[in-house]
Design a protein around this nucleic acid. Sequence first.
DNA 1: CGACGATGTATCGGACCGATACATCGTCAC
DNA 2: GTGACGATGTATCGGTCCGATACATCGTCG
Lengths: 211, 211
Amino acid sequence: MLEFAILGLLQEAPMHGYELRKELTAKLGAIRAAISYGTLYPTLRRLQAAGWITEANETPTASDVPALTSRRGRVVYEITAEGKERFAQLIAQAGPETYDDTGFGVHFAFFARTDQATRLRILEGRRRKIEERREGLRDVLGRAAERLDAYTMELQRHGLEACEREVRWLEELIANERSGRAPTAPTTGATGGRPEDNSPPPPGESRKERP
Amino acid sequence: MLEFAILGLLQEAPMHGYELRKELTAKLGAIRAAISYGTLYPTLRRLQAAGWITEANETPTASDVPALTSRRGRVVYEITAEGKERFAQLIAQAGPETYDDTGFGVHFAFFARTDQATRLRILEGRRRKIEERREGLRDVLGRAAERLDAYTMELQRHGLEACEREVRWLEELIANERSGRAPTAPTTGATGGRPEDNSPPPPGESRKERP
DNA sequence: CGACGATGTATCGGACCGATACATCGTCAC
DNA sequence: GTGACGATGTATCGGTCCGATACATCGTCG
């Protein structure tokens, strides 16, 4: 999961670890807490060993005095061609493991780099999974209610509500996706001239860039 | 976390691993997927080594022929006095780590065995944590909106809504807790204790429902 | 009688977390 | 000016938990 997120983020700009973590936290804040350095740094080295990212020497400012003491600070990473390939492969492979809470969230966060067919597949897989969870909760609340104390029942009730809400959300996204619109599109129409604001690649069709 | 849940469940009845997992799944279905056996069995052995649970010899039915082939099937565990102490200690220690999604959910599921003061402390800690997450999301959606693509923004928006909803839920629970009522209480009857349950009464040491 | 699904115990590699350590840099109070 | 402090920045270690896998028993139904 983290591997996927790193490869996705580094396609927007080269970064060092600390920066990566901040961007990651901003982008994934809705679904998970800040990533631990204890995971980040080992993963970065693993990705480097695999050849998917490389160290980029920081552009030295001309006015900079080449310090005698080796400036061993920030290590900036950038993605390689193989890394981009790997990222595309991870998207294409998106399977059942992509439907759990974290996996779905991370993939969703990079939907702007995902082709529409895959977006649809992921959204529907996620919906199915949530529907199953919802049915499980309904079962417990219905058939096993007398075995549960009031607190446990309240927890299930709250969880059930969250499931129903997410299913509705997914339905909306799926409908939008099928009609070719961008997400969040209010049904009240575009009201004229607001320009398309996709600074990253446009939502239409994601092609692999050839450098 | 798992240790806590196991100790809590085994206070309701002795169980073997498979059963434990099913009960765990039912009780915690709202907050996390089924526990992995790769975690469960090692944990059971750890708890046994610590003296918090013991193997209970399965009550042999009189009609049972004592099989020559050692019946090495189900291993039933039951909690010890030390285990109950440990559980109480884990509740009393409930600190910041109790406020993340999983930790909070598990503790909440055993609120019936938690005293009111601790319940209140946990609920308020959780609320604070969610409020912080909410503010973070608002910041990102406000100040950094133009840096995000439409999908990422939609994810944040959905996460923000979930935060707001949970805060309201927590407020309600806290208010109920302060007024001494049970959660969501529409005059629920006694939460069904099992007849063979010889352990302390379900509501723990705190007086719940005031008639 | 044999296939199949539920029950049941168990291990292994890997992902990820939380605590901890340490070093540099800018800023602001004293 | 200096020193405390918070931000930036890299790194490791122990421990928890997951997912895949293996294997054995039991009841049931074609």
